[in-house]
Nucleic acid binder design. Structure first.
Lengths: 352, 352
DNA sequence: CTGAAAGCGCTTACAG
DNA sequence: CTGAAAGCGCTTACAG
């Protein structure tokens, strides 16, 4: 099994590139001799750039995970082309595993995920670890946690904190987008979301946090629930909303809990003759699709997919090797980034 | 600089202990040859037990952190004996650093933490990283994040997700305690807390989550705010509460956001002639003090201090070496554990 | 999967 | 901090 990271970078390469002695590099890396701050920094910088640090860390990683068993609720599987996020995240995870020489086997079973099936499936292929993606069925999580396999939940929530989890910082990401809109002068913001999994609810929390942080009254903020996360659901929800209120009702921005919804919001608003962002600003969440898929291009919160994938593998490997099963479960949330494009604009540039 | 972990355990020791060939151990650890599942598992098990896995991982760690600069708001410093949690957490952090051969220098400055002072202090002692503990002043966090030093926030919250954070899973921990009380038949639970830092607010969130999860009406739950987190504050708050309501008002349990509060709650309730848990159950949060400090002993949620300390150092080292400053910030939350002792009891054992 | 053997990469001790 | 050198620990290729 080859580990692609090893391109034979050695400390010899680092020493040459950094212009210091071989022994100096060794001392810097191990802290075995007092080295001046400037040399230390230069050596570490070069070592990182050449990928030596990564290689060395990789060597420290024990091959405790040779086969990863991937359990995804069927609705989120790649063949469902609506969910680009799922597809991209799974792709990133596969790539990460390939890079590390880890075999990935996808679970195939009944439409409803079943713990016993997953566990026996994992055993059958000799997998040491299971990555459960997009699911947070409490009973399923409990049953998986009780097995002696390593389990990590990706993009979900385990409130019982029995199994390790890696997820985007949904609450903080939503807060970030809302705060950005507030900083652009918006005060009446509509949060368009759906009654989805708990991770989506965290985005509602973050929406309210931003108002609370600025001591703005929460009744300026409003949450509109669509019937699902597809563009058509967003269109329906907004159509009803605008009909009932006889217009935008003073809202100057729509913050959507998913890009999918934002796409639907854009079309519905435009169909009704509103200009984006001149009449109303639209901000999404996910940042997976390229920005120029919509007109105008979509301002959104980008979820760090690659980092999610690599952290997933790392958390699992750590659990299977050094940390063992005695240590408390961890939940790793990764920061999201606001991508400013055309659909989000200042309220002051709007025609009122 | 010696690294205490290295006790000269080698793969030779592992091979002897596991009863397999030297080369087999190597193959297992590196995944360089197909090895049967049983041998693999045995070798990894022995390697972990002998501490070889830990040693090997430690070798992979680059000495990117030689000196850690510790910034703690003065009110939380060890010399303040009220706050046992702070003291224990800082002790755990110091021990972890000592174990890894990292020097720790504590910041001493004005009563109010000041970013410029912290940064220059850290530079003056040649520290590569700063651990900011118990603080989440947004301006301070922003200023520290802008420096080129590694920064990690311990036991706090950075909603902007600019700096790496390690904290207990406050929301889930509170939910765990509340759910446990609900499972014991309690329905009217009083959450005694104070308007503290945001991490304390997450415990309020978790309190409500537990009711929501069971579809119980939120007005069964009630939050009582004390004026601070000292036992006396808890006593005052409960005294007023009981006076106003003319008794316990149907509440059968008090879930306190800190053991400190729980200690005050116990004394006030007992002073008023209530028996714990026969008349009312009391549950705390922190689990730092030994359980037999109170009569009856305190049922509480234990925060994993050692794991918090080791994760703090690890997150910082990772940021300073492999991951660099380009990757998104992470927030690591660690699971808390319910410690069942005497003060929490079933509602069915109570006299009504 | 074993066991002896060659070899590689890094560490370490030391004189300058 | 350098540079040559010794040595250690692990990896690797191979016959059994």
């Amino acid at each position: 099994m080859d580990r692609r990271l090893d391109r034979k970078v050695g400390i010899k390469d680092v020493s040459r590139e950094a212009g210091v002695a071989l022994s100096t590099v060794s001392h810097v890396l191990n802290g075995t001799a007092p080295i001046s701050q400037e040399v230390r920094v230069r050596v570490l910088e070069v070592a990182r750039r050449l990928g030596y640090l990564a290689k060395r860390q990789q060597k420290g990683v024990i091959a405790s995970l040779t086969t990863l068993y991937l359990a995804v609720p069927p609705g989120n599987l790649p063949h469902n082309d609506i969910n680009l996020v799922s597809w991209t995240l799974l792709t990133a995870l596969s790539r990460e595993c390939e890079r590390r020489g880890i075999r990935v086997v996808a679970h195939t079973g009944a439409p409803e995920l079943n713990a016993a099936e997953i566990i026996s499936g994992a055993r059958a292929v000799g997998a040491e670890g299971i990555a459960l993606v997009f699911d947070d069925n409490p009973a399923l999580l409990r049953a998986l946690a009780a097995s002696d396999l390593g389990v990590v939940l990706l993009n979900g929530e385990d409130p019982t904190m029995n199994i390790d989890t890696v997820a985007p910082a949904n609450r903080y990401g939503a807060r970030l987008a809302t705060e950005w809109l507030l900083s652009q002068g918006h005060r009446r913001i509509l949060h368009l979301t759906w009654r989805g999994r708990s991770t989506i609810m965290r985005r509602v929390d973050g929406f309210h946090d931003a108002y609370a942080e600025r001591d703005l009254p929460q009744d300026m903020a409003e949450v509109l629930y669509a019937k699902g996360y597809e563009p058509a659901h967003a269109r329906d929800a907004l159509k009803t909303f605008i009909a009932e209120r006889g217009g935008l009702d003073g809202f100057t921005a729509v913050f959507c809990a998913a890009d999918n919804l934002a796409i639907g919001a854009l079309s519905e608003l435009q169909a009704q003759g509103f200009h984006i962002p001149k009449d109303i600003a639209v901000v999404g969440f996910d940042g997976v699709a390229p920005g120029d898929l919509t007109v105008p291009s979509l301002t959104t919160v980008r979820v760090p997919l690659e980092a999610l994938a690599s952290n997933t593998v790392q958390v699992l490997e750590r659990r299977l090797s050094v940390s063992g099963f005695g240590n408390p479960a961890c939940r790793v949330e990764l920061g999201c980034q606001l991508v400013e494009r055309e659909s989000g604009g200042s309220v002051f540039a709007q025609r009122q």
